[in-house]
């Protein structure tokens, strides 16, 4: 070998490059972008128009629902998006081709995380704007509330991302991916305090809901966008922030372990 020392490209640099490519791909698929971004907004309009009553002094159901939709938006653009697109990439051979290159696997996952972060931030911004402009959502002015928003949002996105990557192994084919993935989130939205007020759910349903991350993410968002006084209306008479951090963190770890143990670059039937 006469050539000078050859440096393999770094996983971090390639992760950034992959995030750029993923974002291009994502935003160019116009129909899915429009659907992804408008679905939560449309739900806001429907629920905001139908249920206009207050659920506590000075707190309308719409405010409650907006906080829940912001939480759901995080899981739509992380968990749901990744579980479906990775199942498709596995089936059509995108993953197999990547595996045949020297691209470090970490770069692929970093790229997905980067894409999800950008898409979720964009989605949250849209929801916050619409909620504030039309549905009486109070955007907090205290920096510590925005700091709280940052860590809850980030933890939720990370959990949703790793769980989405892990869940993508479940659909047997790209065709069934939508059918296998979407109902999970819809059911969770019913039992996690998005469509209904959580504290008014039957207690067994609360117990089931509390096992999953969306309930904690929605509660965390309420702690930011609803008046402090509403904490008394929550289960346990508080926002339960330490528990939120714990449960979301646990799910992130579980998701990561599942990813590392079950991720496949080739279809299941491919021996």
């Amino acid at each position: 070998m006469t050539s000078p020392a050859i440096h393999a490209p770094s996983a971090l640099g390639l992760g950034v490059a992959r995030a750029q490519i993923e974002l291009k791909q994502f935003f160019r698929e116009r129909s899915s972008v429009i659907f992804n971004f408008s679905f939560p907004v449309i739900m806001l309009f429907i629920f905001g128009s139908v249920f206009d009553g207050d659920i506590a002094p000075g707190v309308s159901f719409t405010q409650y629902f907006t906080a829940g939709m912001i939480a759901s938006g995080v899981f739509m653009s992380s968990f749901q998006e990744l579980a479906i697109t990775i199942a498709i990439e596995r089936e059509d051979g995108t993953l197999k081709r990547l595996r045949g290159t020297p691209m470090p696997p970490a770069a692929y996952f970093l790229g997905k995380i980067g894409m999800v972060l950008v898409a979720s931030v964009a989605q949250a911004a849209i929801l916050l704007g619409v909620g504030a402009a039309l549905f009486g959502l109070d955007l907090p002015s205290e920096p510590e509330l925005w700091l709280r928003f940052a860590w809850i949002f980030l933890l939720g996105t990370v959990a949703g991302t790793v769980l989405g990557i892990a869940y993508s192994s479940l659909p047997r084919s790209a065709k069934s991916a939508g059918a296998v993935v979407s109902p999970v989130l819809i059911v969770l939205m019913f039992i996690s305090g998005v469509y209904f007020v959580y504290s008014e759910l039957p207690s067994w349903m609360q117990t089931v809901g509390a096992l999953f991350p969306l309930k904690w993410l929605a509660g965390g968002m309420r702690s930011i966008f609803l008046p402090e006084s509403f904490a008394a209306e929550e289960v346990g008479d508080s926002w339960q922030l330490p528990e939120t951090a714990l449960v979301l963190g646990l799910w992130a770890v579980v998701g990561l372990v599942l990813c590392l143990r079950t991720f496949r670059w080739m279809r299941r039937d491919a021996g």
């Binding site: 050859i6 440096h7 490059a17 291009k24 791909q25 698929e29 081709r97 045949g100 290159t101």
Partner: peptide, 30 residues
């Protein structure tokens, strides 16, 4: 990085251009 693999079936990557795909894959190699 010393291998080149052309598989039997080609994936979609539908929304990226030829230039973007080739330039991006070039980055994987030393």
């Amino acid at each position: 990085s010393r291998l080149g693999i052309v598989l039997q079936s080609s994936p979609e990557n539908a929304e990226l251009t030829v230039q973007e795909m080739v330039s991006h894959f070039a980055r994987y190699y030393p």
